[in-house]
Amino acid sequence: MNRILSAVVMACLTIVVITGCRGAGQVYNVKEAPVATATGKELTMEQVQKAIVEAGLSLRWIMTPDKPGHILGTQNARSHTAVVDIDYTTKSYSITYKDSVNLKYNADKQTIHEAYIGWVRNLDNAIKGRLMAASAP
């Protein structure tokens, strides 16, 4: 009986620990992802920018190209805001954390709410899809 009770207590403690840790994870950044097209031909800077902007807009990101090779992406959901830097060339792109509001960002641990991680993964996947569909000159 004591073994069963001990096992139940351990299982409950494990669930509490796992549930308590849920909601935050490592900040997800995309580093130098290749710009790949279905044809294998290189896109122009304008085509890469267009693909990235369209991918973001399709997911309700506010995409602000502010200089050649850089876009500022902002995602707003209720009281939460995420801001990312998107740097790109004709060869690769990167998505990196810039700022957030109400997403439990911890600079020391480099953790953030899981919603941010999902938003950036979805953005990355959408960019890959738009780039793959883009036609080279």
Rank of each mutant, 00 (worst) to 15 (best):
I18E: 03
K128H: 05
G20F: 09
R130P: 02
Y116C: 06
Y116G: 01
Q26K: 11
L57F: 09
P137D: 09
G40F: 12
L131Q: 08
V84S: 01
G118L: 08
L123K: 00
A55V: 10
Q26L: 03
C21D: 02
A136Y: 04
T81E: 11
L131C: 07
E32I: 06
I112D: 03
L72G: 00
T14N: 03
Y97I: 05
L43M: 04
I4F: 09
D66N: 14
T19S: 11
I52H: 00
L57C: 05
L57G: 06
Y97F: 15
W119F: 06
K98E: 12
A115F: 04
K50L: 11
L59N: 12
H70T: 06
I4H: 06
Y97S: 00
I95W: 00
Y93S: 04
D87A: 07
H70C: 08
A134E: 13
Y116I: 06
L72P: 00
I86A: 01
L43Q: 04
K128L: 10
A77S: 12
T44I: 02
A24H: 13
Q75K: 15
I4R: 11
A126K: 08
R78V: 10
Y88F: 12
R60V: 14
M132C: 02
N102T: 04
M132L: 15
Q110N: 15
T64W: 01
G40M: 07
L13N: 08
I127D: 00
I71C: 00
T37G: 05
H80M: 06
I62N: 15
H113I: 10
S6Y: 12
T89P: 00
A24G: 06
K109T: 14
A33M: 13
A134H: 05
K50H: 13
Q47D: 09
N122Q: 11
L59M: 09
P137G: 08
A11H: 05
N122F: 08
N29C: 08
D108S: 15
T96V: 15
N76I: 11
L43V: 10
